[in-house]
């Protein structure tokens, strides 16, 4: 029994570290993209279109992972795509967290009309298909990095608000809040000093998970050609192009897909791992 539990915990630990390692690699790649990329990601070479990756026949060693139909280097585009993916992930997840957590805390702690309004909005938001909603928003505000971030914040704040509202409600009912009030703390003081520290672990977990979601949303928007611009190297854009030429040049789809897959998996595993760390029942 005890042995088995330990093994599971250790395996979970390994997954946590692998995920963290992959994400650190991504950060490094994003920071040093110009030095790491063998080619200019935008440079087209119509004579070198759809070259296969290096181990296949007809490959050009200069293009390690092959080229797309316009002769652009797949590897370099993935490397530069990392920048966009991580920028979107970090900025949009943080902003989403800020908005959602604030509204959730206010609704769960103050209750009353704030709660009624926030809950109603959450209900309405839950009735939208999120992907369609984001596509709609981008269509309205026009493509671009800023639009994507805005769309993610507008759509996903409910993820935070829902969970944190419930948690704030539970925490508010606890004895330590009552004793803080007896001790003469103001309402807002209690919210900041007593409740917030207790919901912080959940916020961190949700934030990590949201980064993975943001990466996916960006890829989906690129996939329907609504992301940054069709030239800029994004993983989703590459996947979109790869999907159309899948029978002629699978590598255009496969390599960005693997990168995206591992990244999303890592954010998610990291979030789940943190959740288990924080959860006193599992500790």
């Amino acid at each position: 029994m005890a042995e088995g539990r330990f093994q599971v915990r250790r395996r979970a630990g390994v997954r946590l570290w692998l995920s963290a390692a992959w994400l650190i690699v991504l950060v490094i790649v994003a920071l040093f993209a110009p030095y790491l990329a063998p080619k200019d990601p935008l440079e087209q070479d119509l004579f070198a279109g759809r070259l296969p990756p290096f181990w296949m026949q007809g490959a050009d060693a200069a293009f390690l992972l092959g080229t797309d139909s316009l002769g652009r280097d797949v590897l370099s585009r993935i490397i530069f795509g990392t920048r966009i993916a991580l920028t979107v992930a970090v900025i949009s997840a943080s902003l989403t967290c800020l908005v959602g957590a604030a509204l959730g805390l206010l609704a769960g702690f103050y209750r009353g009309w704030v709660d009624v309004v926030v809950s109603r909005f959450i209900d309405i938001w839950m009735a939208f298909p999120p992907v369609l909603f984001s596509i709609l928003l981008i269509a309205v505000i026009g493509p671009g990095l800023f639009s994507i971030i805005l769309a993610i914040v507008v759509i996903d704040w409910t993820r935070f608000a829902r969970v944190i509202r419930a948690e704030a409600m539970t925490q508010s009912a606890m004895d330590y809040v009552a004793s803080a009030r007896v001790a003469g703390r103001g309402r807002f003081g209690i919210l900041l000093r007593e409740i917030l520290p207790n919901v912080l672990p959940i916020i961190v977990v949700l934030l990590t998970l949201e980064m993975g979601i943001a990466v996916i949303v960006e890829a989906i928007l690129s996939f329907v050609n609504l992301s940054i611009s069709t030239d800029d190297p994004t993983w989703g854009g590459m996947i979109s192009e790869g999907r159309t030429s899948i029978h002629q040049a699978w590598w255009v789809l496969v390599f960005p897909l693997i990168t995206l897959f591992l990244t999303v998996l890592s954010f998610s595993q990291l979030g789940e791992g943190l959740k288990n760390r924080f959860d006193p029942v599992l500790r």
Binding site: G212, I216, I246
Partner: peptide, 18 residues
Amino acid sequence: LSVPDFLWGLVLILVFGV
């Protein structure tokens, strides 16, 4: 659970379509 339907769709296209 960690990977959303969109990515599973792409993986399935690759594996069982190509």
